[in-house]
Amino acid sequence: MSEFAARRVMMVDTQVRPSDVTKFPIIDAMLTVPRETFVPDDKREAAYIGENLPLAPGRVVLEARTLAKLLDALDVQPGELVLDLGCGLGYSAAVIARLAETVVAVEEDEALAADAQRILSEEGVDNAVVVTARLVDGAAKCAPYDVITLEGGVEVMPESVLAQLKDGGRIGAVFMDGAVGTAKIGYKIDGQMTWRPVFNAAAPVLPGFRKAQGFTL
Rank of each mutant, 00 (worst) to 15 (best):
R98L: 05
L99N: 00
L99W: 03
L99H: 00
A100R: 00
A100N: 08
E101I: 02
E101H: 14
E101G: 09
E101S: 14
E101F: 07
T102D: 12
T102F: 07
T102C: 07
V103G: 06
V104Q: 01
V104Y: 08
V104H: 09
A105Q: 08
A105M: 10
E107H: 08
E107T: 10
E107K: 10
E108W: 00
E108H: 08
E108M: 07
D109S: 06
D109T: 14
E110S: 14
E110N: 06
E110I: 09
E110P: 10
E110W: 07
A111D: 13
A113G: 13
A113Q: 05
A114P: 00
D115Q: 15
D115E: 14
A116L: 12
Q117I: 08
Q117Y: 11
Q117T: 01
Q117N: 11
R118V: 01
R118M: 09
L120H: 10
L120S: 02
S121T: 15
E122G: 10
E123D: 14
G124L: 03
G124R: 02
V125H: 10
V125N: 02
V125T: 05
V125D: 03
N127V: 02
A128D: 11
V129N: 07
V129K: 12
V129C: 00
V129Q: 13
V130P: 01
V131Y: 00
A133Y: 01
A133K: 04
A133H: 02
R134M: 14
L135M: 08
L135A: 05
L135C: 10
L135F: 02
A139I: 08
A139H: 01
A140E: 15
A140Y: 05
K141W: 12
K141G: 02
K141D: 13
A143K: 03
A143M: 05
P144F: 06
P144A: 13
Y145Q: 10
Y145K: 08
Y145P: 05
Y145A: 01
D146A: 11
D146V: 08
D146I: 04
V147N: 03
I148R: 04
G152L: 06
G153M: 05
E155R: 04
M157N: 00
M157I: 14
M157V: 09
M157Q: 00
P158E: 02
V161A: 05
V161C: 06
L162N: 10
A163P: 09
A163I: 02
Q164T: 09
L165A: 00
K166D: 13
K166Q: 14
K166R: 15
D167A: 12
D167Q: 11
G168F: 08
G169W: 03
